[in-house]
Design a binder for these strands. Structure first.
Lengths: 122, 122
DNA sequence: AACCGGTATCTTGTGTTGCATGGTACCTGG
DNA sequence: CCAGGTACCATGCAACACAAGATACCGGTT
């Protein structure tokens, strides 16, 4: 069985799924900026904003990528109730990647708005 | 040779490339909403907004998908200078898909802003 | 002790998608 | 007639979200 999926499942259409592509990674980096987090915890925090809700099958490969890419480091810590948790923290490279995205996002956001709403000249 | 690539090429990092995923399709639909367009013309209009600039290797498969999915229809029209152009127009399904995205986009936009900027309560 | 539900991590396989690369064809001007 | 611009399309690859499944630790109940 795969617990925790019933509550945190995405459950929205493929449009939102495609939107999450390439953005989810940086939302996770942003969450790590505020302190160490572990997998299921990240799932819960993402699910608080409906459109970002995702599943374990997405978050764990993503976290593995972050670690392989040197954007995050991990350590194990015992839990009061349940198995050990693997906490993720940002590296300097991770912080730089987040800043790169933060710098690019406004332009992208504006671009999509521009195409969606016809007629908006500076 | 592949002309037109030198000017309309993306030429930005992989971050922007990942951002375009799943959004490019709807930007194209939005452009088609304002009237029929053909491939190279779409490339030029997308390139006007730096971060959306893409290449023919992206736009033609995308347009084929739109047609197969029934979101767009096409017709051929001769050009005054050059080979015939394949113009794309929106179908009713295409208009619906665009509306679906338009309805979802603000929530998504806000969500990313929310994660990037810590501390923003309503 | 044995069992079970909850918590937690990880792997595998699939489908979609942006992109690089390359190929084909049409038209005009020198 | 042939070089260059315009335009379309196909192939192959890599990245990513997701579904589905496997494994394992814990505490409380039977």
């Amino acid at each position: 069985m795969v617990p925790g999926e019933a509550s945190y499942d995405s459950a929205d259409g493929p449009v939102a799924s495609q939107l999450r592509r390439g953005v989810l990674e940086y939302c996770v980096l942003a969450l790590l900026r505020d302190g160490p987090r572990y997998g299921v915890e990240l799932l819960q925090e993402l699910a608080q904003v409906q459109v970002m809700a995702t599943s374990q099958g997405t978050i764990y490969p993503l976290l593995s990528r972050l670690r392989r890419a040197g954007l995050a480091e991990t350590y194990l810590r015992e839990s009061a109730s349940g198995p050990s948790r693997r906490y993720y923290t940002l590296t300097d490279d991770g912080r730089r990647a987040l800043e790169e995205f933060t710098a690019l996002w406004p332009a992208f956001r504006t671009a999509v708005d521009h195409f969606l709403n016809p007629g908006d000249l500076p």
